[in-house]
Amino acid sequence: MEMNEATYFGATPIDGYGPGFFRIGGEVHEGALLLLPSGVREWAGFEAEPIVAAEAEIDLLVVGTGPEMSYHLPREFHSAIEAAGIGIEVMASPQACRTFNVLLGEGRRVGAALLPA
C-alpha cells in the first residue's frame, strides 16, 4: 500500500484533541471552538450565537457535541445554519475532528463547531 501525505489546500487541520482541549496548527486551544476558513476562534456554544453564517463561506458545518453525540441541537442554532444554505452534520467531537480533517483533505468548504470532549 502506498501512503501519501495529506494536503489541506491552505487550511489548518486539527492536530489533536483531549479532555477539554483541541490542538490546531500546533497551538492548544481550551474550551469550545469554531473553525472557519477565516480562522479559529473561541465559541460560546449553541445558545450564545448561531454562528455568523454570512461570513462562514462554507458548504458544510461539522458539529461536535462533546464526548458523546447529542441528537438534539437547539432549534434556533439548527435553523440559522439551514437558513444560510449550509449543510450540518452532528457527531461526537472526536469523530467531528476526524471528519473535519478528511473533508479538508478533499478540498471541501467545511467548518466545525466543537464542544470539548
Rank of each mutant, 00 (worst) to 15 (best):
G20R: 15
G64I: 00
G111K: 08
M69R: 12
A113V: 10
R23H: 01
V63L: 05
L33T: 09
E106W: 03
P67K: 09
H29K: 01
I51R: 00
H78I: 04
E76S: 14
W43R: 08
V62N: 01
G85C: 10
G66P: 07
F9Q: 08
N4S: 14
D15H: 09
H78F: 12
A84E: 08
M3E: 15
E5K: 15
A6I: 11
F9G: 03
E89N: 06
L103F: 09
G18I: 06
A80W: 06
V62Y: 02
E5A: 13
A54H: 02
F77A: 12
A112G: 07
A83D: 14
E47A: 14
G66V: 04
R75I: 13
V90I: 15
A96R: 08
P74C: 08
E5N: 13
L60T: 15
I14D: 07
F22K: 02
G25L: 03
L36G: 00
A84L: 02
L104F: 00
P13R: 06
L36N: 02
S70C: 09
L103R: 08
P116F: 07
L115W: 00
G45F: 00
L104Y: 05
E30S: 12
G39C: 11
R41S: 15
F9N: 11
A96D: 07
H29I: 00
P19N: 15
S38D: 11
G85L: 10
Y71F: 14
A112F: 09
E76G: 10
P13W: 01
A113K: 01
G45I: 08
F21T: 01
E49L: 07
A44Q: 15
M69H: 12
E2W: 12
G85I: 10
D59T: 14
L114D: 01
G25H: 05
E27Q: 15
H72T: 13
E76I: 04
R109P: 02
H78M: 14
L114V: 05
V28A: 07
L73Y: 07
T12S: 06
Q95C: 10
I58P: 06
L33R: 11
L34D: 05
E68R: 15
A53Q: 12
V110D: 00
L73H: 03
R75H: 13
M91H: 11
R109E: 04
P116C: 04
L104E: 05
F46D: 05
P116T: 12
A32I: 02
